[in-house]
Design a protein around this nucleic acid. Structure first.
Length: 625
DNA sequence: TGTTCCACTTAGTAAAAGTGCT
DNA sequence: AGCACTTTTACTAAGTGGAACA
């Protein structure tokens, strides 16, 4: 397409005072439905108690689901009465799909590309809409496919069947004069709306949680951009009020009115520990809490002023913090826990997010609990960035930027599960560091071989020669040799495979033998060194200076690898993305990029650059939050 | 005055895409 | 070109908060 030539609409250069009206005209092509269920071939069946089962087609689609039995009955039952799930044998069906999967995988790269481009072409028209006459991207234009509901944490509805959505379930929203996208053959839309006070293009209701789902504009759209901008401007406005708010809640720690005390303590927790508002949750949802819904058992008090928070927050992510709090906060928490209160009871029994937000509105219209998270996240980022010296390589500056980002993520308790490959990766890097260290020691030993007197004149330089035990050196050598062997063998088989496809004569086995023999010799040499500590110097042109500069290079590599290792470890359970996407004012990143001369590409991915184009273009190197 | 509904933002994870090696 | 890993994007669940409803 000709995307790059198209003039990008710079909404931030226009002012827009009316945000009640979301659009003046809106045309789009509707939504993309998931592919129909492809019926199984007649020889692939579910077996019940060894007998083949003819399933209704809807039940066939959800074969394997928890409430499978229910779906079978709902659709008229099967030829066999299914009573016990244990007797169901899904293996034929499973195998069928496994075969299809591997068939797909075995396609050539060209075939895969072909399929992909067909798919892209088909989806193209759903990706964009016309918003006020301008072409803008649509977000999630795909209708969610049927499947099992995967709740987070221990959700009472985990595993229920999320039903297939038909056009009859979907309402569209567009201009009155916009053509109505034709529904799929033989179907009707549920409803056509023309409501320009809302920002959705399509909506339907999901059957498991009974919640409304929407098709919205993409993150880089003018509409989303404007609302993001407003969010950060509101958080910046809070700067002007935060001192008074803090003064007031400290005063109200001693209020005679219980509600005021609870409000004061809750505001303190939201402000200092970045807790969420914490609305009430229903019986059929996961038991998670935020500030206002904290219960007796979530807070443990340790005099004189230590509090242990331990609860499941949004997405059932654990919040565990042992912290020191303001002395009056401690006393108040003790009061809020006083008998007859017991486990299961609300800590803030007079308070709801609504009451709290109403109170906050008095300071600043539009101020609510969530604004504090945005404010404190961006404030923390600004403070952290201010500490970074403007020096060093781009890579080093990026590492420091990420460290600042991490502070914010920790404040907001943004976690992720440790990647599966993490422990292995850590092992690999630390092995590598020890290997580099060993290579460095060998160089230093060589230096002494060339000039023994240096040991006396530069003793500190050779101190670390004793830092490696014979056992460890042996272990490192073994690893190095094993790696060399593997490398040689792998290269040999690979080369031969290539020759085989070319119908060329293969390399003789002897060639590999030869290589391996060389490696054996190297191993013997190392083994000797283990005792003598005198590595053989193979080149006649070697000088002390040359070796010293090699040592320096190794030291730089060790420093880099150590930083990498530290970074990996620190990031293993912290998710940086969420705060970058939602909480840190992107103008801070734009400022950092300009002031520290770090290309924005190193800080923002392509989608983030698109989402935050307004920030990148409007903030200079002096911008402050 | 509490509850439900609606619209939207925020969230972690699965899947896709990219990268850096041989 | 393929592997092994990392980064980015897509997906959709789970929050927030204001308005409508009872």
């Amino acid at each position: 397409m000709k995307d790059e030539e198209e003039e990008k609409y710079k909404w931030w250069e226009e002012n827009n005072d009316n945000d009640e009206i979301k659009w003046h005209s809106l045309k789009h092509n509707g939504v993309l439905f998931p592919p129909e269920h492809v019926p199984l071939p007649s020889h692939v069946k579910l077996y019940y108690d060894k007998k083949p089962v003819d399933l209704p087609i809807q039940a066939e689609e959800v074969a394997c689901f928890f409430d499978f039995k229910k779906i079978v009955l709902e659709h008229g039952g099967a030829n066999v009465e299914i009573e016990s799930f244990d007797k169901c044998d899904f293996s034929k069906i499973f195998d069928h799909y496994e075969t299809q999967k591997s068939l797909k995988k075995s396609l050539t790269a060209a075939q895969k590309r072909e399929i992909k481009s067909e798919k892209d072409k088909f989806e193209e028209k759903y990706k964009y809409c016309l918003l006020n006459g301008r072409r803008e991207r649509v977000g999630n234009f795909r209708i969610e496919p049927p499947g099992l509901f995967r709740g987070r944490g221990s959700h009472p509805k985990t595993g229920r069947v999320k039903k297939r959505i038909y056009p009859e379930d979907v309402s569209l929203n567009l201009s009155e004069d916009a053509p109505i996208p034709p529904p799929p053959e033989g179907h009707q839309w549920k409803e056509i709306k023309h409501d320009n006070t809302v920002a959705w293009l399509a909506t339907w209701r999901e059957n498991v949680t009974n919640t409304v789902k929407y098709v919205l504009f993409a993150a880089d759209s003018s509409l989303k951009g404007r609302s993001d901008f407003k969010k950060f401007e509101k958080a910046r406005e809070l700067k002007k009020y935060i001192h008074r708010i803090r003064k007031d809640y400290k005063k109200n720690f001693s209020s005679k009115v219980m509600l005021e005390r609870q409000m004061a303590v809750a505001t303190y927790l939201i402000d200092v520990f970045a807790l969420r508002a914490g609305g009430e949750k229903a019986e059929d949802e996961a038991d998670t809490v935020g500030c206002c819904s904290l219960r007796y058992e979530h807070v443990t008090l340790k005099p004189p002023n230590t509090v242990v928070f331990d609860f499941l927050g949004k997405d059932s992510i654990r919040y565990y913090q042992e912290v020191n709090v303001h002395e009056k906060v401690f006393k108040n928490l003790r009061l809020f826990k006083k008998s007859p209160k017991q486990p299961g009871d609300d800590l803030f029994d007079r308070l709801t997010p609504n009451i709290l937000n109403k109170h906050l509105q008095n300071y600043l219209p539009g101020l609510s609990a969530k604004v504090f998270r945005t404010y404190n996240a961006s404030k923390t980022m600004q403070d952290q960035l201010d500490l970074i010296p403007n020096e060093g390589s781009v890579g080093e500056k990026v590492v420091k930027y990420n460290a600042a980002n991490r502070e914010v993520a920790i404040l907001c308790n943004h976690q992720r599960t440790k990647p599966k490959s993490h422990d292995m990766g850590v092992q690999r890097i630390s092995d590598n560091i020890r290997e580099l260290f060993w290579q460095k020691l060998r160089l230093k030993r060589m230096i002494l071989e060339l000039d023994k007197s240096l040991k006396k004149t530069k003793p500190y330089y050779f101190e670390e020669l004793d830092d490696l035990s014979v056992e460890e050196e042996q272990a490192i050598q073994d690893r190095v040799i094993a790696k060399e062997r593997e490398k040689a063998t792998k290269k040999f088989t690979r080369d031969n495979e290539k020759l085989k496809t070319e119908d060329s004569p293969l390399l003789p086995e002897a060639m590999l033998e030869e290589k391996l023999k060389k490696i054996d010799e190297l191993a013997a040499e190392y083994k000797k060194e283990l005792k003598t500590r005198k590595p053989e110097i193979k080149s006649v042109t070697v000088t002390v200076e040359k070796l010293e500069s090699q040592v320096e290079k190794l030291e730089q590599r060790i420093r880099n690898a150590t930083l990498l290792l530290q970074d990996k470890e620190d990031n293993s359970q912290v998710a940086l993305g969420t705060s970058k996407l939602n909480y840190i004012d992107p103008r801070l990143t734009a400022m950092f990029s300009k002031k520290y001369d770090v290309p924005i590409e190193k800080l923002f991915s392509k989608t983030l650059r698109e989402k935050f184009a307004w920030a990148i273009e409007s903030a200079d190197e002096n911008w402050t939050f």
